[in-house]
Structure formats: structure tokens, C-alpha cells
Design a binder for these strands. Structure first.
Lengths: 113, 113
DNA sequence: GTGACGGTTCGAAAATTTTGGAACCGATCA
DNA sequence: TGATCGGTTCCAAAATTTTCGAACCGTCAC
């Protein structure tokens, strides 16, 4: 078959920005969506597999969830690494603290409502 | 003439959310735009009249600038008060510190690029 | 009054983001 | 090999945000 690598649908390692290159406005934007922020709050307690990243309460289509993960990953908020058949999602807490000291603590410490 | 109060184009006092009601995601969203964030950084040095809120470098149409001010004001990031013929724009630093401790400091302290 | 000034609101077009189904991929297991 | 599983990417539609000209408003100077 041709076009072996035409799509990235099954790429093992997704791109993650370097800590030194994180852009503040991208991080703020990624965190400005309520469902993404809620996920980040949950990730503060530890890594989750993608399926567990579903918003508490309702189910969301896989593609929608994947898009939110992409937004967070490309901003540098989370890490998304393959682990066998699934993927682990974790908060890039140390990297965020290094690049934007105090920001994540302030966000996580803020009233949820 | 009829319809005295049909529009708000000349309203003296614009609405500002109460400190206790500020919504984190709204604040993060307001700050996630580069030109708005740059303005907030400038406002950290003190109030500005609207005309002085123009982005350093280029000129932007008045209506565009006004829209950005509205986004920041409705999120509770800035205050916009009439003063004679003009208006003064100021950062709601104390209110933000009260509702989201550490957030503004982290944002202002973050590397600009 | 009349006009200029500083600035907001209205309205519509352009750009971006969000959403979700369908196709796809690699890993795993039979 | 083949089928299933967990998840991403592709694509297009819907929703939201951004942009900006035009209309408008209140203040001040004349």
C-alpha cells in the first residue's frame, strides 16, 4: 500500500513544547475553558488515562476530548505519553512552575466557582 | 425626540462585576489575548486614559480597542470610569488579589516572551 | 445652540474555536 | 491473521470571537 505516513492518526509520540518555549497567552487560553480547567484540577491529583479524562457527569465524544487534550498539550499544560495500548495524561507541573512561577498554584488555589 | 434610552452608546457608568462574582475562566480568557495582556501589563504601572491604551506600535480602530476594553472590564480585570470628557482605565489589582490570590502577580511576573 | 472631541454601541463580515462523526493507527490478544 | 481496544486525525458544520466602519452619546469650548 502507498502513503504509509500520510496521516498521523497513530503517531506514538505526540509533540510537546519545550519548557523554555511555553507561551503565557497559550497557557492562559488553554486554561480558560471550563471543561479543560476542570480536567487540569483533576490532574493535579495525579496522572489519568485518557478515558478517565472525561468530564465528571457527562460523556463527550472521543474526538472532542482528544481536541481538548491537544489544546492543553500544545500549550504545554499537560503531557500525553503512550503506555501500551493506552495513553497517560499528566500535568506538567514542574515545567509550568519553572517557566511561570506561581501561576499554576494560583489557578489551582482559586475558587472553583 | 423619541427613544431616549434605546441605546447605551453614551452610558456614563459601565457595568463592572462584583469582586465576589469574578469567574476564573473569564479572567484567564480575557488575559489570553496578547494585545489585551500587553495592555494589562502597562496598566500595572498606573491608570491610563482610553486613548493611551492603544497598543505600542500600531494604531487600532477605536471600536476594536473598545471591544478589548469591554472584554477585560466584563471579566473584572479592569475598571473603566468616566472622567469629564474622557475615561480612565485602571487595573482591578486589589479585587483580583482578593478573589484570586497570586494570580495577577504570577501573570505580571511571567516572561513577556 | 453648534461643533469638535473622546469614547461606546450597533451590525455585519472575517477569522478562529468547538463539536462530532468517520476513518484511521498501533498495541494486544485470540 | 484477524478482530478488538484505546485513542488520534481528518473533515465539515456550528458556535464564538475578532475586527472595523457607521451611528451615536455626553462633555466641553466657542
Amino acid at each position: 500500500m502507498f502513503n504509509y505516513y500520510r496521516t498521523m492518526a497513530g503517531a506514538r509520540d505526540l509533540p510537546h513544547p519545550d519548557t523554555a518555549n511555553l507561551v503565557l497567552t497559550d497557557v492562559l487560553f488553554a486554561l480558560s475553558d471550563p471543561s479543560r480547567l476542570e480536567l487540569v484540577r483533576r490532574l493535579a491529583s495525579g496522572p489519568l488515562e485518557v478515558a478517565a479524562c472525561q468530564p465528571t457527569g457527562g460523556e463527550v465524544p472521543k474526538s472532542t476530548l482528544s481536541h481538548h487534550l491537544k489544546t492543553l498539550r500544545e500549550a504545554g499544560v499537560i503531557r500525553n505519553v503512550p503506555q501500551g495500548r493506552q495513553r497517560y495524561v499528566s500535568l506538567r507541573r514542574d515545567d509550568l512552575d519553572e517557566r511561570f512561577p506561581g501561576l499554576l498554584d494560583a489557578v489551582l488555589g482559586a475558587p472553583a466557582r
